[in-house]
Design a protein around this nucleic acid. Sequence first.
DNA 1: TATATATTTTAGGCAAACCTAAAAACAATA
DNA 2: TATTGTTTTTAGGTTTGCCTAAAATATATA
Lengths: 222, 222
Amino acid sequence: MSNIKLSKSEENYLKSIFNLSEFGNKQVSTNSISKILNIEPASVTDMIKKLSKKNLIYHEKYKGSTISKSGIKIALQIIRRHRLWEVFLHDKLKFNWDEIHEIAEELEHVSSEMLIDNLDKFLKYPKIDPHGDPIPNKLGEIDFVDKISISDLKINEKGIVSRIINEDEEFFNLLKKLKIEIGSEITLIDKIDYDNSVEILIDKKSVIISKDISNNIKITKI
Amino acid sequence: MSNIKLSKSEENYLKSIFNLSEFGNKQVSTNSISKILNIEPASVTDMIKKLSKKNLIYHEKYKGSTISKSGIKIALQIIRRHRLWEVFLHDKLKFNWDEIHEIAEELEHVSSEMLIDNLDKFLKYPKIDPHGDPIPNKLGEIDFVDKISISDLKINEKGIVSRIINEDEEFFNLLKKLKIEIGSEITLIDKIDYDNSVEILIDKKSVIISKDISNNIKITKI
DNA sequence: TATATATTTTAGGCAAACCTAAAAACAATA
DNA sequence: TATTGTTTTTAGGTTTGCCTAAAATATATA
Ligand SMILES: [Mn+2]
Ligand SMILES: [Mn+2]
Ligand SMILES: [Mn+2]
Ligand SMILES: [Mn+2]
């Protein structure tokens, strides 16, 4: 539809909003965008207005923003570019997996469809990036790979909370108490064989959570 | 010295000023920069002031600009990035040699020294880009290979096209029409004194090309 | 050398993308 | 429900990189 070229800023916002929205299913707060992008809430409001006018998101004043169909489509293309570049940097240029993100964050904004298609072909159409995240294809389709559980981590490995399965209120309250939310960093400290509970480091504090709780928190390794 | 990160605009100006300066030997007029970058002279003056303050160029009011030692150093690094990306796009991603310039114009601004060093290694330290231009090494050193112009050939002498200077799209289209590309064999048939145009044999056909065109095509004798 | 023309700079303005401070709206809780 | 605290928006400002119009300077030519 709207084939207007987006600025680097607009692309970064759109990608973040998409990531916070859990595939377009959740309303995203201005504050959460502000935190992720390290930009003041007032500035985020400015950009929200801009993206709304372009129909890439819908915005309800004081309530939050929802990403639109066309917004999702574009966000998936930016993510596609990002992850393909990460594969290139890791597999071809031999970067370590912890050095690639920042560079890909820049490369993703070089917008040439042919560039990305040729890169995709050169890399032999990879399905996942070096962090294990799935790479959308040209049409924006993703092979859903279920995120791993905390207990799949090895001791001292870190993960970012990427999905909360149980949507009950009590569970949200528990997470709030534990300061666990989408985007939180978790380190596995110990696995307790007795009842399969795990000791994790979250928000600089260590806590032990039950198997049931940890199963409801999906993470991606970092 | 000054290790301040330059903006994309500053980099584009600096590269253009360097290119116009013939390796730092000539003063560059404000108007010539304006024409090359398609930016109004008044805006060029603004940027000249900015680059002067950073000691990347010296500016004499109403006279022109000279690029400084540190300016040259930076310009050569930008050119290095540009040409390495062109090699990548051409050799690895299989772009045609007339499609790469525009994309490299963007990629050159992704500034990570490690990225370029790794790319250089991945490409096996190429010495020339797909247009036949030399690639500066990490230290900014260039292998000078003297190329001659078509009009330097004697009648009936042959040459191999080794460098295309003008990278504009219209020029590429003309070359495509004439079936001239890097590696093409050209025979000089006649020199026309009237306007310094030359008659050449290319792809088994003879054509007359203007002095301007022939000046933009460098060759090596065979 | 005087005048016309071309080049360059100055002055003033605008859009993008950020900021801080203050106001408005919403949510939590006493 | 009234008060307090948090979130979001508005208002006003800055920097970067561009613009147009006009003034200043340099160059060409009569
Ligand atoms: Mn990444
Ligand atoms: Mn980015
Ligand atoms: Mn080029
Ligand atoms: Mn460029």
